[in-house]
Amino acid sequence: MYFVYDLGGTFIKYALMDRAGTVVMKDKFPTNVKSAEDLVAQMVEKFQPYKEDVRGIAVSCPGIVDTKTGIIYKGGSFPFMHEKNLAAMLTEACGVPAVIQNDAKSAALAELWMGVAKGVDSAVVLTLGTGVGGGVILDGKLYNGFNLMAGEVSYVQTDFDTKTLKGEVFGMTGSAVQLISRIATAKGLADKKDGEACFQFIHQGDSEAIAIFDEYIYALASQLMSIQYLIDPEIIAIGGGISAQEIVIEKLHLAVKEIVRVSPFHAAKPNIVACRFQNDANLYGALYNYFLRFE
């Protein structure tokens, strides 16, 4: 058995999984940690009841991750993890090998292992959440990049002011959380994170909600076209909670067709698909990362 963690800004998920990826046990606890030592202590506490059955630990976490050394840089929602070796800390505390991987890259690995990218030579996996996470698969393998930043599409500029040297980035324009918040605000919803209610407005044909949604979809489609030109993958897989809404993929296909119709010089034809894994993608990808490293 393997013990797997998914470190998120709101919750830390953990699961006991077997070699086939079957989830034997799964739970979560609120993310309420202020230091690396506190984080490890809470992770070890969840591990202890199962330690006799566990042969390895796999972790998905935010930040730039050196998978060979186990060191995290930046850390995203866990800034105190900057330059900390989480893999070594867990190995020492638990007595079994531990590996870590960036959360978006973990999602890509999940699709490569048992999802829509299985058997595919090249793919880009994007997770639409608070920002936009990304993972690049080339020659059937996850590509990390020279500085471990391949797929960090949240930082890609969507516009740029040459006077202020600032502008919007893809992490904001492609944010599913921002999309839901805009629709919720426009429709006067008390809960600005109620994605289900927001998509009900879209499905019901509400003009205000659809206008916001269409603007989001066209901005996203434009970035997918750029990614297709840059990497030319076989598929671009869209993940994150909103990927469960079929209308997202449908509208993206329509938006790409419309962009090509208006600008016939376009040659790119991105094959856009929905990811198989959604909420548990990082758990599966983290486990597969362990297998790639040790087994």
Rank of each mutant, 00 (worst) to 15 (best):
Y5M: 09
P30I: 09
V33A: 07
K34V: 15
A36W: 08
E45S: 14
E52Q: 15
D53C: 11
V54K: 12
T69I: 11
I71D: 01
L86A: 08
T91C: 06
E92S: 15
A93T: 11
A93M: 09
P97Y: 10
A98F: 09
I100N: 01
Q101W: 02
N102M: 07
S106F: 05
A107E: 00
G115A: 06
G115K: 06
G140Q: 07
N144F: 12
F146N: 10
N147V: 10
A150S: 13
V153Y: 00
T158Q: 02
K166P: 02
G167A: 06
V169S: 00
T173R: 02
A184M: 06
G188T: 09
D191W: 09
G195N: 07
Q200L: 08
H203D: 11
I210C: 10
Q223A: 01
Q228A: 05
Y229G: 01
I231D: 02
D232L: 08
S243F: 04
Q245S: 05
I247R: 13
L252Y: 05
H253F: 04
A255F: 06
A255D: 01
K257F: 00
V262P: 00
P270Y: 01
A274Y: 06
R276Q: 13
F277P: 00
N279R: 08
N279L: 09
N282T: 12
L283Q: 04
R293Y: 12
